[in-house]
């Protein structure tokens, strides 16, 4: 493993230990007096009528699907940008074709109303 990652693991240990330590300290000194009403869901004061994990709008799923498609695109574009000078004009043409295909997909999704949020 390249040694450049060692400090990252050190810092990861710090980043894990910090919240653990503060929560342990907090546990030692804070009061704890729970009772039934206090532990109810913070909603409207009346006992929650149902579990909150019900159905929600399908828009969120569509956004997730679109994200997967277009995020893969950006993942392809970042290495292309980094090696740009090595590719020359070949890289330019390649990416114009790549983006053109994706753009057609984008227009299709737009026309289908996938980007419409109402």
């Amino acid at each position: 493993m390249p040694s450049g990652y060692v400090p990252i693991f050190i810092f990861l240990a710090v980043a894990i230990l910090f919240p653990v330590a503060t929560i342990i300290v907090a546990k030692l000194i804070r009061p704890s007096a729970p009772f039934l009403t206090k532990l109810e869901a913070y909603e409207c004061g009346i006992k929650a009528a149902s579990d909150s994990r019900g159905r929600y709008t399908v828009r969120f799923y569509i956004i997730a699907i679109l994200f997967v498609i277009f995020d893969v695109e950006t993942i392809f574009l970042i290495p292309w940008a980094v090696r740009y000078h090595a590719f020359g004009w070949f890289g330019v043409v390649e990416v114009v074709v790549f983006l053109a295909i994706l753009f057609v997909g984008y227009i299709w999704a737009y026309k289908k109303g996938a980007l419409q949020w109402v």
Binding site: T22, K27, I29, R30, P31, L39, E40, A41
Partner: peptide, 9 residues
Amino acid sequence: LITKEDLIP
């Protein structure tokens, strides 16, 4: 924040 009660519903 440290001395506040920590509720776990």
